[in-house]
Design a binder for these strands. Structure first.
Length: 281
DNA sequence: AAAGTAACCTGCCCGC
DNA sequence: TGCGGGCAGGTTACTT
């Protein structure tokens, strides 16, 4: 589910709501989600710590504590973080939602963060200051960071013989792009997703580069993409508005918004890929 | 060694 | 009405 814009929206929510809060207690209903350390230790080490900062790397959320320890959270396909300012908030469909509440982080002021995840593909680690995760160290460029330049992209592409969509979705190249935004970036760049990365011309690379930054930025500004099923919600339970700006993703049996011919759906790496064969060459 | 496939889970939608 | 198949924003581990 959540790609960079959704994860960044959630991180901003955390920055706004939980900085300086003190954890009074952590409850874990689904231990399998905690990857490190063991659950008992996880709970014990989080007691009485203060939240001092948040960060994001690709699709990973990072929460730092005054103890110098830090929490790493990946939401998988259906993970959510939900903030509740106090007890007994009324939620629509609360039974369906509550069924998938797995972890509760309670704060001394009575507010809490709930980790909710229908499919349980998410993962959480609590790490010491000197501990690092290989999976984060091996991530590629942060696409909105100044270090991600057009030259950097060009170099990566030159040495890559995969198709451009697989390239964009490989987190070791650029991190944070998933299926929605890969589709949108390639459509708006006029590049067919099956094109080999090392075959792209300079003007195509430039368009892809600009669209990566433009689309991800706009999606963040819209609070991410909530599809009809509403599986993505931000920290405060709000939907993201970028779905209204999607041009091809999810538009099965629809027409190209630019030229009007029927869109096609193909599979790349077993993921649905929406294309206009007239606009994307 | 690259490329394809299965696995991890739950829920929804469709066709029969 | 029910059952099976396919699908879903992700990533890793195993197989050819």
């Amino acid at each position: 589910m959540p790609e960079l814009p959704e994860v960044e929206t959630i991180r901003r929510g955390l920055e706004k709501e939980i900085i300086n809060k003190i954890i009074s207690e952590v409850q874990v209903k689904t231990p399998i989600l905690i990857k490190r350390p063991q659950v008992d230790e996880f709970i014990a080490r989080l007691k009485n710590v203060t939240i001092v900062a948040t960060n994001r790397r690709g699709k990973y959320i990072i929460i730092y504590f005054d103890t110098k320890e830090y929490l790493v959270i990946h939401l998988g396909m259906s993970g959510r973080l939900l903030y509740q300012p106090e007890k007994d908030i009324f939620l629509e469909n609360s039974k369906d939602i509550e069924k998938h509440n797995h972890i509760f982080i309670l704060f001394k002021d009575g507010s809490k963060i709930i980790y909710n995840d229908i499919r349980k593909f998410g993962k959480i680690w609590l790490l010491e200051e000197k501990e690092q995760l290989h999976r984060i160290n091996s991530l590629g460029f942060e696409p909105l960071d100044p270090s991600f330049s057009i030259d950097a992209l060009q170099k990566l592409l030159k040495n890559n013989n995969k198709n451009i969509k697989s390239f964009l979705m490989n987190q070791k190249n650029i991190t944070g792009i998933g299926n929605i935004y890969a589709n949108e970036i390639l459509f708006q760049s006029g590049v067919h997703p099956c094109r080999k990365a090392n075959s792209l011309k300079k003007d195509e690379i430039k368009r892809i580069y600009l669209n990566i930054r433009d689309i991800l930025s706009k999606a963040i500004n819209s609070g991410g993409t909530t599809m009809i099923d509403e599986s993505y919600l931000d920290l405060n339970g709000n939907k993201g508005e970028y779905g209204k700006s999607l041009m091809v993703y999810g538009k099965k049996a629809d027409i190209c918004p630019v030229c009007g011919i029927p869109l096609e759906v193909i599979k790349i790496d077993n993921r649905s890929t929406f294309i206009c064969t007239n606009c994307q060459k």
